[in-house]
């Protein structure tokens, strides 16, 4: 029971780090970005290459994954995404699905179709027994790290000048622009941070979620669930949605393996029917 709970929380926290960038960018520009998982994949493969082929320690790989994914994000945002903010949602969907296909084929070409494995450092291996439950250090590490990040993000969003500008822009982009806030620059920065966090999540997730070229599609649905259920106008909503999804998915697969992911989709559709704006939305 406790094992399932901790596993679920770790999984949910990881999903939050992966998806929170998406929820902010979707809220900010009303842009449907299905290629978010591709940035997570960048982070994952960066970690695999650095750790396995170059012998860089795991903890040093994480910032690198963040930086490179953020870099990829800002380059694509400035060159391609920026042309599509005014386009219809259909065009945005098609464009980002195209990016996902390209990312998948590229990953397949350079890294091969098989799943990549990494060797965790010594101090993250092993488990600790609490009562009759076995909890791995790595999951605790994830809960700790992602928890800290979540608190930091919430702080940045509610207590800093940048956060205030961001919230203003999400609320009403036109008025924010009228007040002299450079929404375009704001968005580029946010997009970079969001992609970077996805990259970090991808790096952390290699061990937990598995990494292969289909990663971008496999978890796209989960990211979208987090965003759709959590709403796009705060960071608390996606956080709670991620935890709910993580615990629900782990518990579902543990207790009723017969119906697999069915529960998750059913819950999502159910939530969206009752609350089309998301479970934790203000409206």
């Amino acid at each position: 029971m406790l094992t399932v709970l901790v596993d679920g929380v770790a999984y949910g926290m990881l999903l939050f780090i992966l998806a929170c960038g998406l929820s902010v960018t979707m809220g900010l520009m009303n842009f449907i970005n299905l290629a978010h998982g591709a940035f997570a994949m960048v982070g994952g493969y960066v970690t695999v290459i650095m750790l396995n082929d170059m012998g860089v320690p795991f903890l040093a790989c994480l910032p690198a994954a963040f930086v490179l994914a953020a870099l990829a994000g800002v380059v694509l945002e400035r060159t391609l995404y920026v042309r599509l903010y005014k386009a219809s949602h259909l065009d945005q969907v098609m464009f980002t699905i195209g990016l996902v296909f390209i990312a998948m084929a590229t990953a397949d070409y350079f890294m091969g179709a098989q799943q990549k494995l990494i060797q965790l450092p010594e101090f993250l291996r092993g488990r600790v027994g609490i009562g009759d439950a076995q909890i791995s250090y790595y999951r605790l590490f994830i809960v700790l790290l992602c928890g800290l990040l979540a608190v930091g993000l919430q702080f940045a969003l509610t207590r800093t000048r940048f956060g205030a500008q961001l919230r203003a822009a999400v609320d009403d982009g036109r008025v924010a622009r009228g007040l002299g806030i450079d929404v375009s620059r704001l968005f580029a920065v946010t997009f970079a941070v969001g992609s970077g966090l996805a990259g970090l999540g991808g790096a952390l997730g290699v061990e937990l979620l598995g990494l292969d070229p289909t990663f971008a599609v496999r978890f796209m649905i989960y990211f979208l669930i987090v965003v759709a259920v959590g709403g796009t106008d705060s960071i608390v909503g996606p956080f709670l949605a991620s935890l709910l999804l993580g615990i629900g998915d782990v518990a579902g697969k543990y207790y009723v393996p017969g119906i697999g992911s069915f529960i998750i989709y059913a819950i999502m559709v159910g939530v969206l029917i009752v609350r089309p704006q998301g479970l934790f939305a203000r409206r």
């Binding site: 979208l224 069915f262 969206l272 704006q277």
Partner: peptide, 25 residues
Amino acid sequence: LRGSDLTRLMVTLGIGMMLFEAANK
């Protein structure tokens, strides 16, 4: 019919995935 484009996208996707899982199991 309910909700915005994003909600529709998610509901249609969710229903599709549910059927896929059901047929799989």
